[in-house]
Nucleic acid binder design. Structure first.
Ligand SMILES: [Mn+2]
Ligand SMILES: [Mn+2]
Ligand SMILES: [Zn+2]
Ligand SMILES: [Zn+2]
Lengths: 141, 141
DNA sequence: ATTAATTCGCAAATGTCTTGCATATTGTAT
DNA sequence: ATACAATATGCAAGACATTTGCGAATTAAT
């Protein structure tokens, strides 16, 4: 548990609880994949909370600044975000259907220590994504 | 050698050799880090070849389509490119000074096979970047 | 109910990247 | 050298994600 993305945590830190914040926090708690500003905006509208896109951007900025979310760059078009509460994992991105799956195994620990200490480079964070074809899409071809 | 980014290779494939193409190919051959459209545009201007930014974008698109370059997404702001001729490597990105270094070691292949075959996911390409503080910047702090 | 701090909506601006179209350049055939 | 077809280029216009300014609305505490 990296930061505890909950309303009570936010309240404890003295942050205001707005309708948008409430819903966004809920969505990230339940999300099984990274979410973009556009996706959130649409999802909020769907549940009847019509909010301005700017507000969504500001909320993402806020939650990221507070350490509740991290940016994930899966494509060059738009930034995705996910909760920092999530267990360490990497992404499997199907380039055919777009589905995003997770790998919870960590593939890089030895590599990090071995190679990077030699360079004197202190790793703060890593980004590892696999692009390819998911099982479902493989069958269909 | 993945694709041979040279003028003769381009000629052999029937592609025209323009001044811009000549210089861009040269720049990618010598580059020790991924380059962005903006960086190329500036570099071309510096050597006295004032070309429109659109042309730079189109050249990058062209060389990527032909398999000479690959996109690298180091930050959410802009896309970088590098030659596919380069030896397999990953990036060390210093978040303090912006310097980009390479790691030529690769992830344990077995791990990829082990974990991903279980998911039935066929890996086409992987993206691995480390963000942190380089040796130089560590010393200064 | 007051009030201070924060958030929201709206319009405008940024910056990257793309597209349409007319013109210029390249490589090749004559 | 000339003519031609294919391709590349410049310029203007657009598409879009993301940011910013600012006044109005909302939140939480007094
Ligand atoms: Mn994830
Ligand atoms: Mn590289
Ligand atoms: Zn798929
Ligand atoms: Zn540095």
């Amino acid at each position: 548990m990296n930061s505890d993305l909950t309303l009570s945590s936010l309240r404890d830190k003295g942050h205001k609880i707005t309708n948008v914040r409430k819903e966004v926090v809920g969505m990230f708690s339940q999300a099984d994949k990274p979410l973009t500003a556009q996706e959130l905006h649409k999802a909020l509208k769907t549940i009847g909370l019509s909010v301005n896109k700017t507000t969504v951007y500001r909320e993402l900025q806020f939650l990221t600044d507070q350490g509740y979310l991290v940016e994930v760059h899966l494509n060059p078009k738009e930034t995705s975000y996910e909760s920092t509460d999530l267990m360490h994992h990497h992404h499997l991105i199907c380039e055919t259907c777009g589905k995003i799956d997770n790998v919870t195994n960590c593939l890089a620990k030895e590599l990090e220590e071995d190679v990077l200490k030699k360079k004197g480079f202190e790793i703060a964070r890593r980004s590892l994504e696999f692009y390819g074809t998911c099982a479902d899409c493989s069958k269909k071809s």
